[in-house]
């Protein structure tokens, strides 16, 4: 039983032909895998490697370099709160504190007890004129206030119960992401 569905694996096998050299398919392939599973498990990375005829260590090396690939379970909804300078000058740290408190976690990448939320503090998201701002899942939210954060959380708690397709980390403690360069291989 493979981690990725046969449909996704078929899609991944078709990717290399779309680029001048097949290796360029690795990130789009990891995207598909992450979309299906919520995060990249070792099994998923090794199946991507097989499908693309690459060394699994290579695939993991790529996955660990980029911050948008998640190697551990995340909440169903992910807050990416910008804390870089322009946002910090307009209250980003208070927003982070409020997000943590509201979803009931103590540190970045910890998943809330209901599996719905996790957060990360991220670097500049290129919307500094709307600081403080964040990306929630795939959408930017501007001019944040604690009230606005509450509203966004309420909207996501209310409508539908959590679909059980994700494996939330629950209250399990997790290590924060290791700095990218610590995994440098060259």
């Amino acid at each position: 039983m493979s981690a990725l569905s046969s449909q996704v694996l078929e899609e991944i096998k078709e990717l290399p032909a779309k680029y001048p050299q097949p290796r360029s398919a690795v990130m789009p392939a990891l995207d598909l895998a992450q979309e299906e599973l919520g995060h990249l498990t070792p099994e998923a990375m090794s199946e991507v490697a097989v499908a693309l005829q690459l060394d699994p260590g290579y695939v993991e090396g790529v996955a660990t370099f980029y911050s948008l690939f998640h190697l551990e379970p995340t909440g169903k909804h992910r807050f990416y709160v910008c804390t870089n300078l322009s946002c910090m000058l307009r209250g980003a740290n208070e927003i982070v504190a409020h997000v943590k408190q509201s979803i009931g976690v103590t540190h970045a990448e910890q998943v809330s007890a209901d599996g719905l939320f996790s957060y990360e503090e991220v670097e500049c998201l290129g919307a500094c004129e709307f600081a403080p701002m964040m990306r929630l899942d795939h959408k930017y939210h501007y001019d944040l206030t604690t009230e606005r954060v509450d509203q966004l959380i309420t909207e996501r708690r209310a409508p539908t119960p959590l679909t059980p397709t994700l494996s939330p980390g629950g209250e399990r403690e997790r290590k924060p992401r290791a700095p990218r360069k610590k995994k440098a291989d060259g």
Binding site: A25, L30, S67, E123, A184
Partner: peptide, 26 residues
């Protein structure tokens, strides 16, 4: 289009090219 995956260094032109080729962006 080719989408990046979160790494400031990809803005540096040769790191960007590495990334476009499916590698770590160094």
């Amino acid at each position: 289009l080719y989408r990046g995956h979160g790494a400031y260094i990809c803005g540096e032109e040769t790191a960007l090219l590495e990334s476009l080729e499916g590698k770590r962006a160094q």
